[in-house]
Amino acid sequence: MKLVLSTSNIMSGGPSVIRRPTFEKSNTELTSSLRENFTVHQQTSTSTNAAALSSRPSFRTWTTQEGETLFIPSHTTNPLSEPREAYDITVKLFYLPNIPVDRRCVQTREAIKLVLGQLGMESIDLLIVSFPGISFDADDEDSDLDDAESQPSVPASAEEGGCFDSESVPEDIGTMLTTWRTLEKLHGEKMVSKLGIAEFGVQRLSKFLPQTKVKPAVDQINVRDCCVVPKPLILYAKKEGIELLTHNDCTNVLPRGTLREILGSGAKGAGILAGEGNDERLKGNVEPQWVVKYTAVVKDRGVVESKGYFAVAELNEG
């Protein structure tokens, strides 16, 4: 069975991760906003079903199963309020480690479809893909560290935040290019106006670029380093017409075991996966497949109207 987890719009009203005193990296933003969204939906279902007040409602009351896909929580759309041209819609797709690369073509289309459905739109402006195991630091370049002394210090909350990706090593350029072909196709279909990659240094870029048909318009770099981005990279990006953007995401956005905990029957779990030998809840191994993050910004005013995540996993009966 496929599990589709959604945070809904985390910007306003509903679940909000920035309720927390410290602002966390995307992995914590993802997990805590998933938890909050589940809680809100559980409560909603409880309040409409007085009999269930005493105990936690069955997950069936606030999730929806369509064939072999379970939507957690039940799918609600949240269409944007203004016309398409008012927005800058950015989607970042995180391919996860240890997932067969040949699934990515289907996964990418699926992710875009979910986001477009959520926002009620037909296309996106920028699709950034994050390959597992790459982190910008690891890309060994000459950085002008002598600049560092005068730089503003980064608050502790922006530090790693459990981001370290020990699960995987970067894949080779060839594999990335295979994936890129899928993105180029989406670009050709006008579903995506611009493509982007994340954490690429000069070396990786210079191997990657000559083999692309559609060049990446964007290279996203972790914000922690934004004031010490190596000059060679800045120059190279300028020359190639690639915009260097900042981000604050973890490469390893969904560490192993996280979903099992969120969905599990423990005190902090959503009560979807069965614990020790009980009941109607689902059994099996949860294998996260991919995560997608989306933001819709009203261009003229710089207002973020919608932001959220979908995480998709396979539940394999063990």
């Binding site: 800058d88 800045i234 260097l244 900042t246 910004v297 932001k307």
Partner: peptide
């Protein structure tokens, strides 16, 4: 963090 900001601006 929710916006696309280029590195120089962000710095």
């Amino acid at each position: 963090n929710s916006m696309n900001v280029d590195v120089e601006t962000r710095c």
